[in-house]
Design a binder for these strands. Structure first.
Lengths: 136, 136
DNA sequence: TATTATATGCAATCTAATTGCAAATGAGAA
DNA sequence: TTCTCATTTGCAATTAGATTGCATATAATA
């Protein structure tokens, strides 16, 4: 793991606890976004409410953002540096209809559409559905 | 009302009932998308399960599509003709952070981003957050 | 008008999210 | 190092929204 979870927490002024380190490490290790249930599965001793509140905290501190894909459960993914600089950012995500994984495509920017008169955009969230490279 | 709900149901091969006519009319009248709760409010005598199943049917028959915005409840909106021709379409939606209404911007197309190698897209769903013209 | 598949209403269930509260713990002060 | 106190945690309970089962009612067509 290149990026140190503990250090990242300190940088973000988040109190360091075992739970938080392990939950953050789950995200650092994963190439796709995770739901509360995903985290419960990888850390079976952890309490759902604690995971939930940890994710809330991480989101407030702009360490994570949420994604609503076609699955029932909300997913969470690490914010890139771009996210962290600017809270009003563009988020393309790819949801695989087969394995149901959702990938955060922060490096793939897209041009924003025009809007009707007097509509002011602050944030764009794009969900692309399809089939990922693993499931072809 | 320009478009006739009853006729629309017939075209789509959906059995005509009082419930379905009134629910469909709610959508024809509305300039924004509706949740189950919204419909319950405007048709207080209607049963939630019936509304739910009606919306399922409408979605299956490509009369409606669903939108997951920042609200908890799922929203539904009429499909445009474009939707109906091609099931793999592009959906820009605008969610107002103040009044919480979500508008379907079918006329506002956007260019699709490039994807990583071997990722095949079939559907794009864009949620734009911001402030609508009514709330400026 | 009779028949039959489909739609409805009601109550119950499910799933995921969310909260309350007392006990445990982290981080800075002494 | 130990003390102090705000913060975090674990457990149980609750909420919100979605979804289902089943008996009855109804639409469409013969």
């Amino acid at each position: 793991m290149k990026i140190n979870a503990q250090q990242l927490l300190k940088e973000k002024n988040i109190r360091i606890t075992a739970n938080r380190i392990l939950i953050l490490e789950s995200f650092l290790k994963s190439s796709y976004s995770l739901s509360i249930a995903d985290i419960e599965e990888s850390l079976p001793w952890a309490d759902r409410a604690t995971i939930f509140r940890t994710l809330m905290t991480f989101k407030e501190k702009a360490l994570l953002h949420t994604i609503k894909d076609d699955d029932k459960a909300l997913k969470y993914a690490l914010c890139s540096d771009a996210c962290q600089v600017n809270h009003h950012h563009i988020h393309p995500h790819f949801h695989c209809d087969i394995c149901s994984k959702t990938y955060c495509l922060t490096q793939y920017e897209f041009p924003t559409p025009d809007l009707p008169e007097n509509f002011k955009a602050s944030n764009y969230s794009l969900i692309i559905n399809g089939i990922c490279s693993n499931c072809q």
